[in-house]
Amino acid sequence: MEQIFFIGFAVLAIVSALAVVSLRNPVHSALCLMVCLFQVACIFVLLRSPFLAVVQIFIYVGAVMVLFLFVVMILDIRKVMLGSLVGKRSGFVYAIMPLVTLEFLLVIFKGGLGKVASNIPSGEEVKVAVIGKELFTKYLFPFEVVSILLLVAMVGAIVLAKDRDEGA
């Protein structure tokens, strides 16, 4: 049962991810990206971490994509311009894509993935309290660095967008 659901979500995620890069219209791409992120959230549920799934929807599907759409709608990319966005060497890209896929598949099925791993997480559902505790003890340092990172992003964005009287 779970396997069936996983395959469903995974296939849909991959198909929508392919659609994101192959569709010409940026809004359609954004829609597909939403679908893709949503499927990933569903896979998180299957992996017994509903918190991560919900946060994925909350932040990526709920907030980040809204900003993407906001920008896309303001940019108003017309069909003429879309042609120029797709590079001339796309044939090369299309040739490489199946190769990379093949390589990955080979590695995954022939390469003995996970032979080194020693501590595979158990199938228990992860409680929010546990995540919180880990975040503020074991992962406190990365957590704080991330907060500085966000501050930097904010400062940088404001500096670049700020109105200033600068001679050329």
Partner: peptide, 25 residues
């Protein structure tokens, strides 16, 4: 995914103790 840790000493430990190196590495 391969070593189960992100700590550098842990990675070295896991790689050292592994009997075969997976191609995914």
């Amino acid at each position: 995914g391969l070593t189960g840790t992100t700590e550098i000493s842990g990675i070295a430990e896991a790689l050292r103790s592994a009997d075969a190196q997976p191609a995914a590495l």
